[in-house]
C-alpha cells in the first residue's frame, strides 16, 4: 500500500472512529439520564430497543409491516416522480413552450410543502394511499426538476456541440449527453426529493393516516394515541433513522461513487 492511500484510509477510519465514539457517548448519556430520572416520555435505551425487537415479531403491531408499507409507497412515488421529472425536463429542452410553462410550474410548486396540499388531497382524492403517493410525487418532482433544469443549463456547450456534431438527434442528445452530463444534479435532486418525500409521507400518515393503509406514521400515531406506548414511538423514530441512513449510504453513496465520483464530476 502506498503512502497516499494509507493517509487517505487512515483519515477515513479516524473520522469513522470519531463518529462512533460520538454516538456511543450520546447513548451512554441518554441511558444514564433516562434511568436516573425515570420519566415516562423519556424511556431508557434498553427499554426502547427491547420494545423495538418485540414489535418485529408482535402480531398486534408488526412494525416492519408498517415500515414496509411506507417504504413501498415512497419507492413507487420516487420512481414515478423521478421519471416524470426527467421526461418533463427533457421535453422542456425539446420544446420552448413546454419549457417556459414547466419552469413556471416548478417555481410555483417547488415552494409548496406537500403537507399543505393535504387538506385539498383529502377532499378531492380521499385520504388513502393514492393521496400519499401524490404527495410523494409532488415532493420529488419539483426539486428534482429544478435541479435537472439547472444542471442542463450548466452543461459545457462543447459537450452538446460534440453530440450534435456526431449526429445525435434531439432525443439522442438528451439521453446521451444532457442526462449524463447533469447526472450530479439528477442525483442531488433525487436526494432532496427523497428527503422531502420521506418527511412528507410520515407527516401525512401522522396527520390522516388511515388505519387501513398502515404506514410507519400511523404506527407512531397509534403508539401515541391508543397504546400510549412511548418506547414504541422512539423505536419507530429509530427505525426511520436507520432506514434513512441505509438509503443514504447503501443507495445514494453507492450510486455516486459508481458514477459522478468515478467520472471526476464531483469530489
Amino acid at each position: 500500500m502506498n503512502k497516499e492511500n494509507y493517509t487517505k484510509l487512515k483519515s477515513r477510519y479516524t473520522s469513522l472512529g470519531v463518529q462512533f465514539i460520538f454516538v456511543v457517548i450520546c447513548c451512554i448519556s441518554w441511558q444514564l439520564y433516562a434511568t436516573s430520572r425515570n420519566i415516562m416520555g423519556f424511556p431508557a435505551l434498553d427499554v426502547i430497543v427491547a420494545h423495538l425487537i418485540d414489535s418485529f415479531t408482535s402480531t398486534r403491531q408488526p412494525i416492519l409491516l408498517y415500515m414496509a408499507h411506507s417504504f413501498i409507497l415512497i419507492v413507487e412515488g420516487l420512481a414515478i416522480g423521478a421519471l416524470t421529472a426527467v421526461v418533463l425536463s427533457g421535453l422542456s429542452v425539446v420544446n420552448n413552450i413546454i419549457g417556459s410553462i414547466y419552469r413556471l410550474l416548478i417555481s410555483i410548486f417547488d415552494l409548496l410543502p406537500g403537507v399543505a396540499l393535504l387538506p385539498i388531497l383529502m377532499i378531492t382524492v380521499g385520504a388513502n394511499d393514492l393521496s400519499i403517493l401524490i404527495l410523494v410525487i409532488h415532493s420529488v418532482l419539483w426539486p428534482m426538476s429544478r435541479n435537472i433544469m439547472d444542471g442542463f443549463r450548466m452543461i459545457p456547450p462543447t459537450y452538446i456541440e460534440a453530440g450534435k456534431n456526431y449526429g445525435l438527434s434531439i432525443y439522442g442528445l438528451l439521453a446521451g449527453v444532457y442526462i449524463p452530463a447533469s447526472f450530479a444534479n439528477v442525483l442531488s435532486g433525487l436526494k432532496i426529493g427523497w428527503a422531502r418525500a420521506w418527511r412528507g409521507l410520515i407527516s401525512a400518515e401522522m396527520i390522516f393516516g388511515a388505519a387501513q393503509s398502515a404506514g410507519i406514521g400511523v404506527y407512531i400515531n397509534n403508539a401515541r394515541t391508543i397504546w400510549l406506548d412511548y418506547p414504541s414511538v422512539y423505536g419507530a423514530i429509530f427505525l426511520i433513522i436507520i432506514v434513512g441512513v441505509i438509503v443514504e449510504y447503501g443507495f445514494f453513496h453507492v450510486i455516486e461513487s459508481r458514477t459522478v465520483k468515478r467520472w471526476g464530476m464531483i469530489r
Binding site: 459545457p156 459537450y159 460534440a162 456534431n165 449527453v177 452530463a181 467520472w263 464530476m265
Partner: peptide
Amino acid sequence: ERVMVFQDYNQLFPW
C-alpha cells in the same frame, strides 16, 4: 461530414 476537434481540452464526455 464535418467533424470538429475543439480547442477546448474538455470536449471528451467525462462519463
